[in-house]
Amino acid sequence: MSENILTTESPSNHQGLDQKSVLEILTGINEEDKSVPLSVEKVIPQIEALVEVTVEKMKSGGRLFYIGAGTSGRLGIVDASECPPTYGVPHGMVVGIMAGGDSAIRKAVEFAEDDLEQAWKDLSEHKISNKDVLIGIAASGRTPYVIGGLKKANGEGIVTGCIVCNQGSEVAQNAKFPVEVVVGPEYVTGSTRMKSGTAQKLVLNMVSTAVMIRLGKVKGNRMVDMQLSNEKLVDRGTKMVMQELTDLTYDEAQKLLLETGSVRRAVLKGQK
């Protein structure tokens, strides 16, 4: 795919941004953002295929890995880091890795994404195997770090997927389960942290949420295994217990919750 026709790098639909008022800028950004969920909707079948195979692997004890660089890498780390507190899964069940390591989360590491070999070295530290799933995240679809990681994983018989924002990219060609969300030109030409980043975040939300639901981490519509790591979550959990065990007062439900450590265990104990 020629660099000259990358959708993510194509000129903005909006001209003279530096001459616009704040209201005009905000309105233009919002107009562009409205198109993103519609672009995601078009690729739900691709997301479904990726989720189905991920659930299958994780039910057999596998893990989910994300790799990416820059904004894409950070989004993977955010999604992975939120799974343990939200769903009570062990740290290391969903792993986010980005080019340049942890220091790149806050500050860009120059040329880190250009190393074809580094992703596999990073993944090897976690002893990735064919029990696991690897998803490469790259708006452009041409990030060497991601391409190299996917190629090596394919050679090792690991299930691979990707989330990209250009059609027919090299990243997608090296993923067995590609998700290609084409959102069109960015408001600021080439600024893929905007619409492309939003699309990637939406897809990551869908993937991890659907996987956790299918793994039994949600009951009804409630996060019954969430970690009770602050007062807000203790309060939320207490109210969940009260909804399931309607004869308990707030104080009784909270006591039971704190004794058992989770909504799921509190409800099970209360039903005995």
Results as ranks from 00 to 15, higher is better:
Lys20Glu: 00
Gln243Trp: 02
Val36Thr: 14
Arg214Ile: 05
Val207Ala: 04
Gly148Ile: 10
Lys107Glu: 09
Lys269Gly: 03
Thr160Leu: 05
Gln19Trp: 07
Ser196His: 06
Asp18Trp: 13
Arg236Pro: 08
Ile137Tyr: 03
Gly70Glu: 02
Lys131Met: 13
Thr143Val: 03
Pro84Met: 04
Gln227Glu: 11
Gly270Ala: 01
Gly70Leu: 04
Ala253Lys: 03
Pro84Val: 05
Leu258Trp: 07
Ile135Ala: 00
Gly73Arg: 10
Asp33Phe: 15
Arg74Asn: 11
Gly101Lys: 13
Leu6Pro: 02
Ala139Pro: 05
Ser169Trp: 06
Val211Ala: 01
Asp251Lys: 15
Arg222Ala: 08
Ser196Thr: 12
Leu6Val: 02
Glu82Thr: 11
Val263Gly: 01
Ile158His: 01
His14Ala: 14
Pro45His: 03
Ala80Tyr: 06
Asp18Cys: 07
Ser124Asp: 14
Phe111Cys: 04
Lys255Gly: 09
Lys151Arg: 15
Asn30Met: 13
Lys57Trp: 08
Gly149Gln: 05
Lys151Glu: 05
Gly216Ala: 00
Val218Pro: 01
Lys152Leu: 07
Gly62Phe: 07
Leu23Cys: 04
Ile47Pro: 02
Glu56Ile: 04
Arg63Lys: 14
Arg265Lys: 15
Pro144Met: 14
Glu110Thr: 12
Lys255Asp: 10
Lys269Ala: 12
Glu186Asp: 02
Cys165His: 02
Ser140Pro: 08
Ile163Val: 15
Met98Lys: 09
Ile158Asn: 00
Gly16Cys: 05
Thr260Trp: 09
Gly101Trp: 13
Leu245Phe: 08
Leu64Phe: 10
Met223Pro: 13
Ile135Thr: 01
Phe65His: 02
Gly157Trp: 15
Ala49Asp: 12
Lys42Tyr: 11
Lys127His: 12
Ser140Gly: 15
Leu134Met: 06
Glu180Asp: 15
Asp132Met: 10
Asn174Gln: 06
Cys83Ala: 08
Leu23Gln: 14
Glu170Ser: 11
Gly168Met: 14
Tyr145Gln: 01
Glu52Val: 13
Lys34Tyr: 09
Met223Tyr: 10
Gly92Leu: 10
Asp114Gln: 13
Leu50His: 04
Ala138Gly: 01
Ile213Thr: 07
Met226Trp: 09
Gly237Pro: 09
Lys151Leu: 03
Gly68His: 01
Gly237Gln: 08
Ala80Asp: 04
Glu117Tyr: 14
Leu150Phe: 11
Gly76Phe: 05
Asn154Ala: 07
Ile29Gln: 15
Lys107Ile: 07
Thr238Ile: 13
Gly92Gln: 08
Gly62Ser: 09
Thr71Glu: 06
Gly168Glu: 08
Val182Gly: 11
Gly184Asn: 12
Met194Gln: 09
Ser72His: 08
His91Ala: 14
Lys34Pro: 06
Leu50Pro: 05
Ser103Gly: 03
Val241Trp: 03
Thr238Leu: 11
Val171His: 03
Asp79Leu: 11
Lys269Leu: 12
Thr71Trp: 10
Pro37Ile: 10
Ile97Val: 06
Asn166Cys: 02
Asn130Ala: 13
Gln167Ser: 10
Val133Met: 03
Pro185Thr: 09
Glu180Gly: 14
Gly61Phe: 07
Leu26Glu: 00
Ile137Trp: 03
Glu259Phe: 03
Asn30Thr: 10
Ala253Met: 05
Ser39Lys: 15
Arg222Thr: 08
Pro185Val: 07
Val181Asp: 00
Val51Gly: 05
Gln243Phe: 00
